[in-house]
């Protein structure tokens, strides 16, 4: 088998696995739940817009403030983490629980191609579910008679989309690894995302850099968001370094997931 043929076959295998996974991943109860959460986030954007438009409260604030709060609190620290935790841990463990992994493992496809194919499906599904929430929230908050803020902050929206995409990649790879590796990936994922990341962000020194969230916060474009509070206690990582670290983390987690899938014996209980 020539190298070129191998690459072509590998890509085709991954695509086939991705299509197969998309079908089972997207059309599930999980998606209904995530769509519900997206709608609630959009509902909050609508509420913010109403408060802005009708001056319900005395202390004035701008669309940018509401948008940055939504982004940092609801999207980055909740939606991204939950969607990737939900779908990422399901990639392999759902096949193990459903005892369907046999059908994939007994095909002429290398196991890493199965992992990467499934990961591609995860990225596609999560992008489809999270990014529209970001864009629609922005539209809801900014679309008004005076379009100047809309155009002024469009760059921030672009950055947010990029950050959310990077976050989906990194968290997705990490939770895929947990799903392939552990028997109870959900608990481990929750402890990591809401325990470890929460605590370590406030710790001094290098420990803060042992989280995904540190690099996301480092490139987060909203200065007044609650998440930036953590930054008071430590330095931000420079943007190029943060982006490349996130990409490197993604590659490492994914490679580790492939290795686990290749070497682990999955005993499907009768």
């Amino acid at each position: 088998m020539t190298g070129r043929f191998r690459i072509a076959k590998g890509w085709r295998d991954m695509k086939t696995i991705a299509y197969l996974t998309l079908d089972t991943l997207f059309w599930s109860k999980k998606t209904i739940f995530v769509v519900f959460i997206s709608l609630v986030v959009l509902g909050m954007a609508v509420l913010g817009r109403l408060v802005l438009s009708y001056n319900w409260i005395r202390a004035p604030f701008t669309p940018a403030q509401v948008f940055s709060t939504l982004m940092s609190t609801a999207v980055i620290h909740f939606m991204v983490v939950f969607v990737t935790l939900f779908y990422g841990t399901a990639l392999i463990s759902e096949e193990v629980e459903g005892k369907t992994l046999t059908y994939l493992f007994l095909r002429p496809i290398p196991k890493p191609a199965i992992m990467v194919g499934k990961y591609l499906a995860l990225v596609w599904t999560s992008v489809l579910l999270v990014l529209p929430t970001v864009v629609f929230s922005y539209l809801i908050l900014y679309l008004r008679d005076d379009l100047r803020p809309f155009w002024e902050d469009a760059g921030v929206l672009g950055k947010d989309i990029g950050i959310v995409f990077l976050a989906l990649l990194a968290y997705g790879a990490f939770f895929s690894l947990l799903g392939a590796w552990l028997k109870h990936p959900i608990l481990a994922g929750l402890i990591y995302a809401f325990g470890w990341e929460g605590i370590v962000s406030y710790l001094p020194g290098f420990t803060r850099k042992l989280t995904v969230t540190h690099y996301i916060q480092s490139i987060f474009p909203h200065e007044n968001a609650p998440a930036s509070l953590a930054m008071l206690f430590g330095e931000r990582t420079q943007a190029p370094e943060a982006v490349s670290t996130l990409l490197l983390m993604t590659a490492l987690f994914l490679a580790a997931a492939c290795l686990v899938l290749r070497e682990k014996e999955y005993v499907l209980e009768q």
Binding site: M44, W56, I57
Partner: peptide, 10 residues
């Protein structure tokens, strides 16, 4: 999180 956002907005 819902509370955090509402408390900021309101």
């Amino acid at each position: 999180i819902f509370y955090q956002i509402l408390s900021v907005v309101l």
